[in-house]
Simulated scan of single mutants.
Amino acid sequence: MGSGVEERNVAIIVETSNSYARGILRGIHDYARSRQGWTLYLTEHGRHEIDQSFAGNWKFDGAIARIETDLMAKIITTMDVPTVDVSAARLISGIPWVETDDEAITRLALGHLRDCGLQNFAFFGDPFYNWSIWRQQNFERILGRPDIIRSRIFNLPARKEPRVRWWTQREEIRSWLESLPKPVGIFACYDGCGQQLLEICRYYNFKVPADVAVIGVDNDELLCELATPSLSSVIPNAFRTGVYAAEILDRMMSGEKLSERKHSIEPLGVRKRVSTDVLTVADSQVAKAVAFIRQHAHSNIGVEDVLREVPLSRRVLEARFRKALNRTPHQEILRVRTNAVRELLLETEMSLSEISEALGIEHPEYLSVFFKKETGLTPREYRDQVRGRSFLKIAD
């Protein structure tokens, strides 16, 4: 007698060569483990490489694919099975796709640069990729002032092939960097571009992060740590992207008709490294207060402690804080402590009780409540999603 479990043979056509794609694969795998009968087909390949092995005599019930070439789109179309796209290239119409929330990514990147006290911003992009174009558009929309912003944008040359010999653009990039008001925070469209920009800054002796602070996207740990200096980066929720794509495909393979639309996945936060380890605040008293707060991120301080360090009344300090950083001292304390919790969750195996003790918080329950209020996730959910663990139930 059969088990009664309906078997699903699913083609996973996602590269294994970069951190973001591997995060998607972890999410797909986690979902598949929760579903009896799912069998995954995956081969090792790089981005933009054509893996045609699945197009032979294999019989698939569905596919999740990063459709990034015309040939890949043709093969997927010929397969004629339910398919979910996890690429921004948009080479097949009529199918659902799951991608990063580029507006949220841009807001996080700019918010982080503002947290460093920066007031001048620029964008370094690669228009070969749609998500770079969308991030640039969000950059322009959020900052406004098109008369100024256009001069703050540098894009690598448009081309038909994925590879670009970016070092041939060194002189143009140097001239652009020289033209930017300093200090400046640069939002690089992804970690690869961020690393390239840091190499050019090092080559031409631009001071990072004192004069040029750089933040990328994807938080590719190896790439970010190998950069000189190490690269700050927005952390996408690639794991949830994979889970969501698998859940959508499951519904489609069960006969549900889903229209073409983008399912946007919000990022998890920012991983700060040396490339943005700077604080630029013109108001000396506010700068002193912020430095005190950051130095005591692992202590249970309040606004009263800050006022003992800065010879200002609470009302005056709050007014000057708002003018300089667009937030109150209390909000800065919460923000810094939230980031301290993030770092401990990312970089250690400490339990919630141990993190609470390290931060001078008496009750772990309070830490969990305040962290979820600030981030929308419990500490455990945050750690699991960043590390690509634990199946996530996706709402309809």
Results as ranks from 00 to 15, higher is better:
389 R>G: 03
171 E>D: 15
99 E>L: 15
345 L>N: 02
66 R>N: 12
228 T>Y: 15
164 V>F: 03
358 A>K: 13
354 E>G: 02
108 L>I: 09
48 H>R: 08
207 K>E: 13
112 H>Q: 06
359 L>G: 07
105 I>K: 03
189 C>H: 09
183 P>L: 00
207 K>T: 09
127 P>A: 01
257 K>C: 14
212 V>H: 05
236 P>V: 04
50 I>L: 14
393 K>L: 13
231 L>V: 01
245 A>R: 08
330 H>L: 01
154 F>N: 01
159 R>P: 07
97 W>L: 02
200 I>L: 15
227 A>K: 05
272 K>A: 12
40 L>K: 01
335 R>Q: 07
235 I>L: 10
73 A>F: 10
150 R>H: 12
357 E>P: 04
14 V>T: 13
360 G>T: 08
337 R>Y: 04
46 G>M: 07
142 I>C: 03
31 Y>I: 09
31 Y>G: 03
27 G>C: 09
167 W>G: 03
173 I>V: 11
337 R>G: 02
66 R>S: 14
250 D>C: 11
162 P>N: 08
16 T>I: 02
269 G>L: 09
393 K>D: 08
349 E>F: 07
58 W>C: 09
97 W>G: 10
145 R>N: 15
9 N>F: 11
99 E>C: 15
139 F>C: 02
107 R>K: 14
